[in-house]
Design a protein around this nucleic acid. Structure first.
Ligand SMILES: NC(=O)c1ccc[n+]([C@@H]2O[C@H](COP(=O)([O-])OP(=O)(O)OC[C@H]3O[C@@H](n4cnc5c(N)ncnc54)[C@H](O)[C@@H]3O)[C@@H](O)[C@H]2O)c1
Ligand SMILES: NC(=O)c1ccc[n+]([C@@H]2O[C@H](COP(=O)([O-])OP(=O)(O)OC[C@H]3O[C@@H](n4cnc5c(N)ncnc54)[C@H](O)[C@@H]3O)[C@@H](O)[C@H]2O)c1
Lengths: 235, 235
DNA sequence: CTCACTTTGTGCATCGGTTCACAAAGGGAC
DNA sequence: GTCCCTTTGTGAACCGATGCACAAAGTGAG
């Protein structure tokens, strides 16, 4: 009996691979909607915007789910990737900080689509607490621990001002949360074992500006030769 | 005469370094506000949440701006990093798609702080066009090319629905833009020489879910042994 | 069954990035 | 000036990720 279960996946999928799986999943969902039954690594790679060898290596970390000469079964692969990412279960998400950004996130539909459900909104401002947004009542931050417990929240999205973020993160972690998505422009310090991912608009723009400057420099012939400190700032 | 100008920086700063420079800049600004005149690589590294050797190597790509035995002059380093990133000039940004997210971005203050200025808002919905948001008139997408030219826009933020993103990107690129920040969950295809950065909430959540699942699996003792395809989907 | 064709899965070379660890450089005390 | 202390800048080992290129595996025609 040849059981080739978890052949090449005793444990440990490379981080770079994990970051691409959602991309493959999105491309596969589009294909499933268009009625495709199977797809080759080449086609899927193009749809996901990656190299096909990389795609095959990524998928090989989950197991041997393709058929040589044919490709991958679309539905089956969707299931396997979803399972690997933990999307076959339902994740309750709390958004802390219901300002400009928090509201946009709360109203965002594409959120729910795949396993994630906004289960709570929390804010410190009494003006905001009690508002009804996207079918949810905004609750007071004092209720944080109780809300997390009661709603089974396991992922927290931080959308407070930068100054409040660390303090809120500390409470959230103390309440047992180990996965945080941070929108505030600060480096959060958390204990080992807590995963933080950050989304930082300002950093993205600065990276774009860097490359944009290089491009226009190249046009106008080299950097503007102003390598000197322009004003005599006390040094 | 020993001119050690652009000693170790003939051209080409590693991409990983570029992505961290904004982080250092942010930490340095905080220090400048608190009145610190100099900082060691160790202290700055802690503030930015990186290893100090990495920080020193990163900075060494810009030039030799530290003083052995002392550290780095805070103001001077702020200036050098800002210049390298292109933040000593002013960047005009256009936001295309003024829905939930576009509005939040337009109202976001931290945007302007460092060299970036929201110079135009564009939308296709006649209901939205003409609205006044954050002191700007929302203009019709038909005016895209004219607005980009007139306002000197060089970076475009895409906040349209996924279905419209590629089409808008094509027009934006045709209008001469080479830097795009994309919030729509699609893989955009653009000509070589155009830089795209994407911010994808859904991917971030999925990555968190993956790790969260691993953590709880470990608690409850290995994966739930459900390695089989649960329902007989036609394969 | 055999043969031609397609496509996967992976060994291997390569590359970019990280980290260690230390020589070289500078500051300040005396 | 000399000596000691601090901290930078970087060579070199290491590590993970990428991409080529191909053998192995499967399909389908005849
Ligand atoms: N708006 C954007 O487009 C945008 C973009 C990038 C980053 N950000 C960052 O996201 C965060 C939120 O931005 P915003 O524009 O929504 O700001 P905002 O001021 O509109 O909203 C912040 C909300 O957090 C609440 N808050 C403050 N302290 C709190 C606490 N201790 N506990 C709970 N809630 C608290 C406030 O009452 C407010 O409702 C900021 O850190 C900002 O830098 C925003
Ligand atoms: N809202 C969020 O928190 C959030 C989070 C992550 C990603 N996103 C993504 O950001 C994008 C915008 O999200 P949203 O919630 O603001 O959506 P939305 O529907 O509220 O806003 C989209 C806006 O784009 C405009 N638009 C449509 N087609 C256009 C075109 N061809 N040219 C110009 N404008 C056009 C619409 O009129 C609308 O005003 C979506 O792709 C969404 O998936 C949103």
């Amino acid at each position: 009996m040849i059981r080739r279960l978890s052949q090449a996946r005793e444990r440990g999928i490379p981080e770079a691979t994990v970051a691409r799986l959602p991309l493959y999943l999105r491309a596969l969902n589009g294909m499933a909607e268009r009625g495709l039954a199977t797809v080759s690594s080449e086609d899927l790679a193009v749809a996901a915007g990656v190299n096909s060898a990389k795609l095959r290596k990524d998928l090989s970390h989950l197991g041997s789910y393709g058929t040589r000469g044919v490709g991958y079964d679309v539905e089956y692969l969707i299931y396997q990737i979803s399972r690997e990412l933990g999307l076959t279960q339902d994740w309750a998400v709390a958004i802390v900080g219901v300002g400009n950004l928090g509201r946009a996130l709360a109203n965002y539909g594409g959120f729910v689509s795949r396993g994630f459900r906004v289960a709570a909104l929390l804010d410190a401002d009494p003006e905001v607490v009690g508002d009804r947004i996207a079918g949810l009542n905004v609750e007071h931050i004092d209720e944080l621990e109780a809300v997390i417990r009661r709603r089974g929240v396991s992922i927290v999205v931080l959308a407070t001002p930068a100054a409040a973020a660390q303090q809120v993160a500390d409470r959230v972690v103390a309440a047992g949360i180990t996965s945080i998505l941070n929108f505030a422009p600060v480096v959060l310090s958390v204990p080992e074992g807590v995963d933080i991912r950050k989304v930082d608009l300002s950093i993205e723009l600065q990276i774009l500006a860097f490359h944009e400057q290089r491009k226009t420099d190249r046009m106008t012939g080299g950097p503007a030769m102003a390598e000197e400190w322009p004003e005599a700032v006390d040094l």
